[in-house]
Amino acid sequence: SQTQRTQDENEARRIAEEWKRRGYDVEVRNRNGHWEVTWD
């Protein structure tokens, strides 16, 4: 799996939607004030 971090929730949601469209299983988490998008 791969993880991308961002400070911006909207960006995190956009990234998550992009990977979901490509057929990946995606998880979005808030950790210590930043957002992590993990896909595999």
Rank of each mutant, 00 (worst) to 15 (best):
Arg29Thr: 13
Arg5Tyr: 14
Gln2Ser: 10
Gln2Glu: 07
Arg31Ser: 10
Arg31Gln: 10
Trp19His: 09
Gln4Arg: 13
Asp8Glu: 07
Arg29Ser: 11
Asn32Lys: 05
Asp40Thr: 15
Asp40Tyr: 15
Thr6Ser: 07
Trp35Glu: 00
Tyr24Pro: 00
Glu11Ser: 07
Ser1Pro: 14
Val26Ser: 04
Gly23His: 03
Ala12Pro: 00
Trp19Gln: 09
Gly33Trp: 01
Trp35Thr: 01
Arg21Lys: 15
Glu9Gly: 04
Val37Gln: 00
Asn32Thr: 03
Ile15Thr: 03
Glu18Phe: 14
Thr3Gln: 08
Val37Thr: 02
Gln7Cys: 15
Tyr24Ser: 02
Tyr24Leu: 05
Trp19Ser: 04
Glu36Leu: 06
Gln7Ala: 12
Glu27Trp: 05
Val26Met: 02
Arg14Gly: 04
Asn30Ser: 10
Glu27Tyr: 07
Trp39Met: 09
Arg5Gln: 11
Gly23Asp: 01
Tyr24Lys: 03
Glu17His: 03
Arg22Pro: 01
Arg31Asn: 13
Asp40Pro: 09
Asp25Leu: 10
Tyr24Trp: 06
Ile15Val: 07
Ala12Trp: 02
Glu27Ala: 10
Thr38Ala: 09
Arg22Tyr: 06
Lys20Tyr: 11
Val26Thr: 06
Glu27Asn: 08
Val26Arg: 00
Ile15Gly: 00
Arg14Ser: 08
Trp19Lys: 13
Ser1Ile: 12
Glu18Asn: 06
Arg22Gln: 12
Val28His: 00
His34Asn: 09
Asn32Met: 07
Asp25Trp: 12
Val26Trp: 01
Asn10Gln: 13
Ala12Lys: 01
Gly33Val: 01
His34Trp: 15
Glu18Arg: 06
Ala16Pro: 00
Arg22Trp: 06
Trp19Val: 09
Arg14Thr: 07
Glu17Gly: 04
Gln4Thr: 13
His34Thr: 14
Ala16Trp: 04
Arg13Thr: 05
Asp25Thr: 11
Val28Leu: 07
Asn30Thr: 08
Val28Asp: 00
Ala16Asp: 02
Asn10Ala: 14
Ile15Ser: 02
Tyr24Met: 06
Arg14Pro: 00
Asp8Arg: 04
Arg13Met: 09
Arg5Leu: 11
His34Met: 15
Arg22Lys: 13
Gly33Lys: 03
Trp35Ser: 00
Glu9Leu: 08
